[in-house]
Design a protein around this nucleic acid. Sequence first.
RNA 1: GCCCUGAUAGCUCAGCUGGAUAGAGCAACGGACUUCUAAUCCGUAGGUCUCAGGUUCGAAUCCUGAUCAGGGCGCCA
Length: 575
Amino acid sequence: MRELATFEERLSAWTTETMAELFSLDETAGNLGVTPTNNEKFGDYQCNAAMELARTLKTAPRQIAQDFIDKAIVPEFIEKMEIAGPGFINIFIRNAALAEYLESIEQDEHLGVPQAGEGKTVIIDYSSPNVAKPMHIGHIRSTVIGNAIDRIYRFLGYHVIADNHLGDWGTQFGLMMVGFRSFVDKHALAEAPVEELERVYVASYNKSKEDESWREEAKKELVKLQQGDEENLALWKQFIELSIEEFNIIYDRLGVKFDLYRGESFYNKQLPGIIQALEEKGLAKESDGALIVDLEEDGMPICIVRKSDGGYNYATTDLATVQSRMAEFQPERIVYVTDERQQLHFKQFFTIAGKLGMNANLVHVWFGLMRLPEATFSTREGNVIKLAQLLDDAEERALEMVKASSPEMPAEEQKELARAIGIGAIKYTDLSQNPQSLVTFTWEKALNMEGNSAPYLQYAFARISSVYDKYHVLYPETDLSDCSINIEHEIERRLAIKLGRFSAAVIAAASNYRPNILADYLYELSQIYSSFYQNVPFLKAEEGTRESRIRICRITASVLKQGLNLLGIETPDRI
RNA sequence: GCCCUGAUAGCUCAGCUGGAUAGAGCAACGGACUUCUAAUCCGUAGGUCUCAGGUUCGAAUCCUGAUCAGGGCGCCA
C-alpha cells in the first residue's frame, strides 16, 4: 500500500483481507471494504460486508460481524468498533491517529493525493470552438469542465496534453469567403474581429438562402480553398488568427491554457489514408454516392465517412486525429469533452477506430446543453449571451460587493479582487453541478455569490489566511510545525475527518470525469470550517490548543487552496 | 418509428460503485456582529425521491414498463 494511504484505503484492505481469511473467501465475494458513514453516530467508516456474506456463509449477519470483531487483529489506529442494525460494523478512528495523518499530509506536496498517473500521457480535447464565431455561454461548460479535468489529471501526476481542436475547416468557409469580400466592415473588423466575422457569415448565409448564384459562388470559393488557392488560403488563415487571438483573451480571463491548438485542418492530409484503410479492411461501402460505414451489427446507424461530393466528414477527421495522436504521443487515453448532442457521433467513431485497430482508449465526457429559461438559444434566434459579456457582468457584480465590504481598499486592488471573485463564481456554478444534468442558464444562478458558491469558499479561505497572519504577528517566535495537533472539540474532529478525505474526492472526480465531486467536497469542507471558525476560538484559545487549531487551519487552507486551484478558481488572501 | 439522457423540498441542485431517520443553497420564519472578516454562523419549517411493477436482508440508486421533458438518427460539426 502506498505510503500516505487514507483510513478508507487502509481499513478496506484490512477488512477485505481479514474477512477473506476468517471465512475462507475468494476475491469474488463482493465488496468487503469500508465506506465513509453518513452520520457521526455510526462512527467514521462502516463495513457492510456481513449482510452480503450472510447468504453464502449461511450465518446471521450480526453473528458474522461479531465473529469478525472477536477474531480480527485490530490495527492500533482504530478506537473501537460497534455492531449496529442488521449487521453494520461501525469503525471509529482514534483521535491521535487522525492527528498523525493530518501531520503527514501536511508534509506532502500533494496533500496525500497519490501520483497515480506517473509516466502516463492523457490527451484532453476540450473547448474546441468554431473559428469566426464568438464564444457564447454554451462554450463555457466544455472549457471550464475540460480545464478542471485537465488540472485534476495533472495533479495526479499524468502528463496531460490539452488540445484545443478548433473547428477551422468546413463548408462554412465558402460562405465566409464570399461574404467577407462583399460586405466586411473594416472598421468593425478592427474593433471586434470575431463579432464582425460572424456578422459577415450570418449575412452571407441569409443571402445564400435566397440567391442561388451566391450559393454557387460560395461553393466555388470553398473548392478553391480546399485546392490550396493562395489568396483564399491567406484569407482563411486570417480568420483563424483573428479568432484565436480573441479566444485567447477569454482563455486568459478564465485561466485556461492549452498545449496545442490543432484545428481540424491539421489532419487534412491524412484523410485519404483513413478512407483507404477503411476500404482495405472492407469496412466502408458506397451508398447513394457517399462512402459509409455500416454499423448495424453494433446497433448504430450508418456513419458517412465521405460525402457524395468527395468531401470528408467530421468522423473521418476525428479518426485521422486519433491516428495522429496515437503515433505522436502514445497516450494512455484520449478524453473528449463536448455537449450531449455528440454522443452518437463519438460512439460511432470510437467503434470504427476499434475496427481499424487503432488500439486507443477513447473516452467521451459529455455534458448537458445549456438552455435559457425561455428556450434553447441559437445564433439565428439572436438570443445568445456572449461569454465575454457574462464575464464582464460577473466581475462588475463582484466589484459592487467588494466596494461595499472593503471601501478602504485601493481601487486597483478592488478590481483585481472582483475579477478573481467574479470569474470564480461563474466557473463554480458550472463545476458544482453534475455535468450530465440539464442546465438552464439564469443570471441569478451564474452570478450567485452566497451560499453554495465560489465566493463562499474563497471567503472561508480568506478568513483562514487572516487568522494565520494574525497569529504570526502575535506569536512571531512560534514554529507551528513543532506544535502537536490535538483533536478535542467535536467540530475539530469533523474537520480532521473531512480533511483526510481530500484524496478520495480528487480520485473520484478524476475517474468519473466529474469535477462536481471535488466541488461538493470543498463546499462541505468549507461549511465545516466556517462552523469551526464561528463556534470555536483559536487566537484566544489557551496555549497548546491555540497552536493545534492554527495548525489545523493551516492544513485546511492548503487543501482549500489546492482544491480550488484544481477547479481553476483563485484564492485571494483577502476578500 | 428507433436510440441516448433526465424527472428528488416552493425554486436551483447534490446524493459515489445499492446501506441505517433522503441533503445543501435560495426563498420563508426566529436568533447571533463592543469578541479571530456577518459574502458568515445557530435554529425552525419544508419530501408519497414522476407513476406502476420487479430483483434484494435493504432501492432515490439496479431491471422492466408507462408518462412527461430534452437531445440524436446519410451527405452539419
